[in-house]
Design a protein around this nucleic acid. Sequence first.
DNA 1: CAATAAACGAGACGGTACGTCGTGTCTTTCG
DNA 2: CGAAAGACACGACGTACCGTCTCGTTTATTG
Lengths: 207, 207, 207, 207
Amino acid sequence: MTSANPQRRSERARTAILKAVLEACSEQGYGSMTMEGIAKRAGVGKQTIYRWWPSKGAVLQEALNGMIGAETDFPDTGDIAADLRTQMTRVVALLEGEIGTYVSGLIAAAQAEPELAETMVANIFGPRVEACRQRLERAVRQGQIRSDADLVGIAELLYAPLYYRMLLRTRPVSTEQVGQILELVFSGIAPTGSREVAAARPERPGE
Amino acid sequence: MTSANPQRRSERARTAILKAVLEACSEQGYGSMTMEGIAKRAGVGKQTIYRWWPSKGAVLQEALNGMIGAETDFPDTGDIAADLRTQMTRVVALLEGEIGTYVSGLIAAAQAEPELAETMVANIFGPRVEACRQRLERAVRQGQIRSDADLVGIAELLYAPLYYRMLLRTRPVSTEQVGQILELVFSGIAPTGSREVAAARPERPGE
Amino acid sequence: MTSANPQRRSERARTAILKAVLEACSEQGYGSMTMEGIAKRAGVGKQTIYRWWPSKGAVLQEALNGMIGAETDFPDTGDIAADLRTQMTRVVALLEGEIGTYVSGLIAAAQAEPELAETMVANIFGPRVEACRQRLERAVRQGQIRSDADLVGIAELLYAPLYYRMLLRTRPVSTEQVGQILELVFSGIAPTGSREVAAARPERPGE
Amino acid sequence: MTSANPQRRSERARTAILKAVLEACSEQGYGSMTMEGIAKRAGVGKQTIYRWWPSKGAVLQEALNGMIGAETDFPDTGDIAADLRTQMTRVVALLEGEIGTYVSGLIAAAQAEPELAETMVANIFGPRVEACRQRLERAVRQGQIRSDADLVGIAELLYAPLYYRMLLRTRPVSTEQVGQILELVFSGIAPTGSREVAAARPERPGE
DNA sequence: CAATAAACGAGACGGTACGTCGTGTCTTTCG
DNA sequence: CGAAAGACACGACGTACCGTCTCGTTTATTG
C-alpha cells in the first residue's frame, strides 16, 4: 500500500485522514466525498493521502477495518443456532448504522476497482467468513449441523440476504430477518417428512 | 422520467443512446463511462440525454430493462425444484456475461442515488421477485414447499447468494452454486431427523 | 434581409420582435441578451427571427433605426454654430439614454460582424453624416465655414469625441462636451494670430 | 486581478496564455475566440486562466498592454504639430495592423463588461492620454498652443476620429486622416479673420 | 369558398462553449 | 526529507444558446 518510507510516516496525519474519511462518508456519502475534501478535513496535503493509499476506497477500507472490533466475533455457548442469532443480530446492528454506509460505499467502489475488491475480501470479509466457518465446524462436530454440507456455502446463505437487502434496498435489513433466515436455513423449505426431495438430487431427472 | 414533451421525442436518439450506454459500460465499465462519451458514441447532444434521464445510472437501467427478455421467466413443469434450477441457471448465465457488468454497475450506482435504487427495484428486481413468489405459491399449493414459509423470504434466500458472490467477488458465480443453494435451502442444515431444532424456535430458549 | 416571401410575413410577429429586442437590450445589455430570450419575450418561434434576420445585431439595428425620429435632424436657423449645438445636444441626450445602450451594443457587435457594420453605416450613420454635410455645405456658402475644408472630415471631428467617450468610458458624454468641441473646432488650437501655423503644412519641413 | 497566491504562479503558463490570446484573436477575431481555444493553444488548463483573469477580455488587455512599447511615446522636437504628426502616424500604423484587431475587440468587450472598461482606461488609454496632455502642456508654455484650452479635450479631439473610423468602419484609418485632423484642429473651421465667431460663445445668443 | 401552401408557435435536436469541480502530479516552503 | 499548501494539465460535469429541423396550427391568398 506504499512505496515511500513507512518509518518516517506521520502517525498524526494517518490518524487524521482515517478519521476524516469516515466523517466525510457519513456526511456526504461515499460517492460524493472527495480526496480534496478528505485532505482539507484532515488538515493534510493531498499528496500525503496519495503517498500512502491509491484511492479513496482504500482509505475508507482501512478506516473501516480499524473501527470494527469484537462485535462480529462468534460466541460459543454450545448452541450454534443461538450463537448465530447473537452474532447476526450484531451484524445487523452494524449494517443499520453508519457502518452500513461505509460498507455499501465500499462494495460499490469495489465494482470499479478490482484491487480494492481483493483487499476488501482479504481484510474484511475473508477473516469473518473463516471465523464463521470455524464456528460452524465446531457445530458439525457437536452434531448440530449436517456433516455433509459446505460450510462456506452455509455462511454465504446466512449472510447474503442481509447484504442483498442493504444493497438492493428492497426492504431494510432488520432483526426479524435474522430469525427468518435462521429458521429457513436450519429447517429447509421442503414440506415436513420429505427431506429427500428432488432438490437434493445433483442431476436433473429426465422422466 | 421526464418533464419535456414526450410526443416530440426522437426515437432514433433514444435508441442510439440506449445502445451506446451498453457499449460504453461493456468497454469501459460503469464507473469509467461518462455522459459525454455516451453522447458522442450515440451521435447525440448531451442535452438530449439529460432531457430524458437524470443520470447515467438511469440510462443504463432503462437499457438493461429493455434487453432482458424471457430468460428470467419461470417455467412450470410441476417440479418446483427443477424449475428453480432451470431459471436460476439462466440467471447465472446472465450474471456471468455482460449483463453482470451492467447489473453490478447499476447496484453500485444505486448506493449513491436513492431514486435510482427505487426505480431499479420497481422495474428490474421487483417484478422478478414477484414472479418467483407466484411460482413458489403454486408449489406450496401442490405440497412441494412448506406452507408456513414467507415466500419472498425464500426468494431472497435463493438469489441473494448469487448477488453476494458477484458483488463481493469472493468466488465467481457459477452453475454449481445453484445446485448447492437449492440443496441447502430445500433440505436445511440441521442434521437429519432433528428438523424441530432450536433455530426454528422463534424465541431463544433460556435454559 | 430575407429569402422568404415577405408578402406573407406576419406584421404582428415583426413588431413584437423589434419591441422585444429593445426591452431585452435595455434589461440585460446587448452581450447578455439571446435569440432564445428575444423569441420567448416576443411570443415567437426562434425560426421566425432567423427567417427574417441573420443575427441579433441585425434585429437590434432595425429596431433602433425605427425608433429614432426627427431628433437628429438638423435645424437651419442660419447660424451654423447654434444649429450644430442644438443638434449635437439632442444627440447627447439620446446617447445618454437607453439608445446609447443600443448604439454601443450595436457598434460592439459590428466589430465581429462585417455585414452588420456595413448596414449599420448605410442605415444609421451614413444618412446622418450626409445630412450634417449638407448643413455644413450651406454654412460654407453663407461664409460661416472655411471653404477649403473636407466637410465629412469636419463632421467626424465634431461627433467622434462623443462616441469616443461613450465607448471608452473615460468620462461620460455630456452637454458641456458639446460646447467644448464646438469652441475648439471652430477656433482651432493655435494661438491667436498664427493660424498659418506648421500643422497646416501637408509636408513636414526638414529644415 | 487575482485572489490566488501570485508567488506560486507559473510564469511559463502566464506567458503561454498571453501569447495564445494574441494568436487566437488574430486568427479568429475577438468574438470567435474562446477560453477553451486559448487554453488548448497555450497547453494550459482552463482553470489556470480563470484563476488569474476573469474573462477573455481581461487576458487580451494584459497581452495587449505588454506588447505596446515605445511606439506611442511622444517625441519632443520643440515643434508640437510635427511631434503630434509623428506620434499619431505611429498610432495609425498600430491600428491598421493586428493591434487594431485587438483594440477594437477589447473596446467591443468593454461594452458588456464595466470592470474591463475601467481597467482598459486605467492601463491602456489613461496613461497615453496623460502623456499627450503633458506634451501639449509644454507646447502651451512655448506659445504653440492657445493657453486657454482644456488639453485633455484637445487630445480627445485629435484621437477620437481615428477610433471613430476604426470602430464604425466608415472609412479606413489612414495617414492622410492624421494630416486632415491636425490641419482642422490647429486652424479651426471658421473662415479666416473671424475666429471670434459665434461658436466660441459659451451661451447661445437670443437675438 | 374551399384547398393549399406559407408562415407561424413551439420546442427537440446535434453541437460548442461555458465556468466549475475533482483528479493525480508537481513544485515551493517550512519545520 | 516528510508534510502543508496549493498551482498545474486534464477531463468531465451539467447548463445555456446556437442555428437547424420537425411538428401541428393558423392565415391568406388563389384556383
